[in-house]
């Protein structure tokens, strides 16, 4: 997409709506989920890897390639680490209503 296709004003609208969205989604979260959620939001900003990828793919000289490579490397770490850690934490939350047998099964899976 050409840079000129988006004016700064439209960007501000997007920022405002996104900020409200983040606020509303998080404000109802029980505190037991705060740590997984911090990790989950950490995963979501890993989308920065997409920006880094497009920088690296359009690189035309070695400095750009080096910095782009670091960008993608770090971004990939952010995405993968954020996902694995969040998934591991969330998978542990189980209610007591679950039958013991079922629980044992989940433990093995």
């Amino acid at each position: 997409m050409p840079v000129t296709s988006m004016t700064f004003i439209i960007a501000l609208y997007i920022f405002m709506l996104a900020a409200f969205t983040g606020y509303v989604v998080i404000s109802r979260v029980p505190s037991i989920l705060h740590t997984p959620l911090m990790s989950g939001s950490n995963f979501i900003h890993g989308i920065v890897v997409v920006g880094a990828l497009s920088v690296l793919l359009s690189a035309t000289n070695i400095p750009e390639q080096v910095i782009g490579f670091i960008g993608v490397l770090f971004g990939a770490g952010n995405v993968m680490g954020g996902y694995v850690v969040t998934d591991r934490m969330l998978a542990m939350f189980k209610p007591s209503t679950q039958k013991p047998a079922q629980k044992a099964q989940d433990g093995k899976a």
């Binding site: 997007i14 920022f15 409200f20 983040g22 606020y23 705060h34 939001s41 979501i44 900003h45 920065v48």
Partner: peptide
């Protein structure tokens, strides 16, 4: 960076986390 790259997906995801993270 989403604005810099003209990529709305980065803008939205980044800003959602920015505000959610500030609230947290």
């Amino acid at each position: 960076e989403g604005y810099v790259m003209a990529d709305p997906a980065l803008m939205i995801a980044g800003m959602v986390v920015g505000s959610a993270g500030t609230l947290l």
